Computed example of a mutant assay.
Amino acid sequence: MKDIHVISLGAGVQSTTMLLMACRGEFEPKPDLVIFSDTGWEPKNVYEHLEWLKDEVKKHGIEIAVTNNGNIKEDIVNSINDSKRFASLPFFVKNKDGSTSMVRRQCTNEYKIMPVRKAIRNHLGYVPKQRVKEMVHLWMGISTDEIQRVKESRERWITHRYPLIEKWMTRLDCMNWLQRNGYPVPPKSSCVGCPFHDNHMWLDMKRNDLESWNEAVEMDREIRRLPQFKNEIYLHRSCVPLDQVNFNENQIEMFEDCTGYCGV
């Protein structure tokens, strides 16, 4: 059985580090394929970083393939206007009894996982439902501080590999490696309106990326018109309109020089 090595690229700190380390021979073998699945709603600086990364890895004979399964922002807007199904984000729900809950997340599977699998199959020349004969080693950019995300593949023809965990690297180790080798530290890769953003991420967007902030505020307002939900839904865990959230800015400022999770 032939082994195929594929990097699933998110273009954030960890996956960028993993790819560049592979380019420099610090992870072997050299990957056969690198795939970035584009949700269509990343911040502009993530797309700028991706273009830089494409040029950088070309120097090492590696190409980054970009795939997608539609545009998540457009799909939400279309669902508001014509009630079409869309892969839901983990929106926060304000229930009628005053409690809060979260919508089941479908977006990662449909805009990230499934498009990568489809791109791998296309690369290997398979049509839908045809059995894959190769063993695909899918490299995931997960560091030790996210070890709870380590999972085995549910596909017989895919096995997951976690190179950063093999070297017991944290997110901070990745940042240090990038800086030590003269590479820029990437922005955090996630959808502009991802409900998983913490207060620091939202505040950083509000201060430093007004275009993305305005998009998120508008989307937060619009999702309450989604016909699929009986209760009010929000992007922020407080179940308050995003532009009215108190981010405790003075408290956050005390930690802006933190080199851990904050600000990366």
Rank of each mutant, 00 (worst) to 15 (best):
Q14G: 01
H200D: 08
E256Q: 14
I72K: 10
L20H: 08
G141H: 00
L50C: 03
P227S: 02
L53V: 07
M205Q: 11
I62W: 03
G25Q: 00
E222P: 07
C239M: 07
N71Q: 07
I120Q: 03
K230M: 10
V77Y: 15
G61P: 11
E74V: 09
N78I: 03
M205E: 08
Y126R: 10
M114S: 09
H200Y: 09
N78C: 01
M140T: 05
I147K: 14
K230I: 07
I72F: 01
R237E: 07
N248F: 11
V34C: 05
G182A: 01
N250D: 07
P31S: 04
P163Y: 05
Y162N: 06
E215V: 13
L226T: 05
F247R: 00
L172Y: 06
G10T: 13
P195W: 11
P115V: 01
G182P: 00
Q130A: 03
M140K: 05
I64G: 06
V132H: 11
G182Y: 06
W168R: 13
I35M: 04
D257S: 13
V240L: 14
S143K: 03
K44S: 15
V57K: 00
A11I: 05
I76K: 09
E215Y: 11
E218M: 08
H123F: 14
C191F: 00
K151V: 08
E232P: 12
L178G: 13
N68T: 12
Y126I: 05
E48Y: 00
E51P: 12
N69S: 11
G125I: 14
W139P: 08
S101F: 01
L19M: 05
R24N: 14
Y234A: 06
R121D: 04
H123I: 10
S99K: 09
N199M: 07
N109E: 14
E222A: 10
C174Y: 00
S79M: 05
E134T: 13
